[in-house]
Nucleic acid binder design. Structure first.
Lengths: 206, 206
DNA sequence: TTTTATTTGTAACTCAAGTCACCAATCCCC
DNA sequence: GGGGATTGGTGACTTGAGTTACAAATAAAA
């Protein structure tokens, strides 16, 4: 794992020291649920390594994808909920082994006043999540499933920095709140158009 | 119009004085566009009276509703964009004659450090908008049009504190990104189930 | 009072996408 | 290697909702 100062290079040195002093580094195995619908949140997390999936669970247990948290990012919701100690609407879980830095909620308010770089970091966290949600609304409100699938695959490839998506059709269907058959059909069409090559548990982008 | 101190009673007196000193009160006629997609934002707004519709415009000019800003609320986006001076993804316009207090963006950052009540106000503005977007995603991703229509009518009634919605089917269709015929059909069904009474340009909730 | 524009009602059609049913291929583990 | 589990392919059917087309009702304007 890289150094905290490298991952959060935009934060000023004095703040990084405080973060190191007050935060607890925790490594979480893949697939662990970090936040459950309706759960009370008592600390925020900065992602150091790995990746966290933020999603909404529907009635059938499908995990409708909202966005991913990557190293160098923080959970906007935990910061927001902090202020109100209100129930969160969404869930979060690790997709791979993930190292996070847990920061007590009290520190967040304190640092906002003391460190300009923290203030800007928190605001930009909000803004990025806000944008991400606007984008998601765009997708579900205006796009058809074929466009959404295409967008999903490309984003997934970009985030993981590879052009092979190692997911089953079922998993993709759940993240897009669709059904396996629909995704299989659309992927077949994409293959016929030479946009992808299909393998078992893997989709290769061309 | 009520007093600023009454509308924003959660803000501390010293801050209210500063707001009055630095802000400009502006009354805007109904239907005026306050923020256009891609436009640069140079000041934030606190709503004193009236109401502002925040929406996304689709290709055909339909105004897909995101949420309404009411007296006592502020535009979260303008605050977010402020920090980054980035283009906004969405549009805003007055639905009726609206009085706002324009505050230069520079003040926002300044007050965050100086006034705890401002800090909490801004954060709660973010959180409320975030919640609103999550709710919207819920609607478009998981609900059918009949449920969305029902939800829409009830919310509209609640906001305007009346059980008569003074809108044409066409207007409703645009805000839900649907078509007039679909809304007419669904409303007819609701009337048959004794959920509403239909009038010209008005829908009465029972 | 005509004329015109707006609003609403409805039937018929189309299409995207979800569901059902079933099968084949592949993997995994005992 | 055999048997169950997971994954993927495909046809047939259903449904929600958008589209086309047209008519009736009402309001607004001339």
């Amino acid at each position: 794992m890289e150094n905290i100062a490298t991952i959060f290079s935009q934060l000023e040195p004095a703040l990084l020291e405080e973060i190191t002093a007050n935060g607890v580094i925790k490594t979480i195995p893949a697939g662990e649920i970090l936040m459950r619908t309706g759960q009370f949140i008592k600390s925020t997390m900065l992602v150091l390594e790995g990746s966290i999936k933020v999603f909404r669970e529907n009635e059938d247990g499908g995990e409708f994808l909202m966005y991913y948290l990557q190293p160098g990012e923080a959970c906007a919701l935990s910061i927001i909920c902090a202020a109100k100690s209100e129930a969160s609407q969404i869930m979060a879980k690790t997709v791979e082994e993930t190292t996070v830095l847990m920061v007590p909620l009290g520190m967040i308010d304190k640092w906002m006043l003391e460190y300009k770089s923290w203030y800007h970091f928190v605001l930009s966290t909000y803004r990025n999540r806000f944008d991400e949600l606007l984008n998601l609304i765009d997708q579900v409100a205006f796009r058809n499933m074929d466009e959404r699938l295409d967008f999903y695959l490309k984003r997934h490839a970009k985030i993981n920095n590879t052009n092979t998506i190692a997911l089953s059709h079922q998993q993709i269907a759940e993240e897009l709140n669709s059904s396996r058959e629909v995704i299989s059909r659309l992927l077949k069409k994409m293959e016929q158009r030479n946009m992808v090559i299909l393998h078992r548990n893997a989709i290769e982008l061309i």
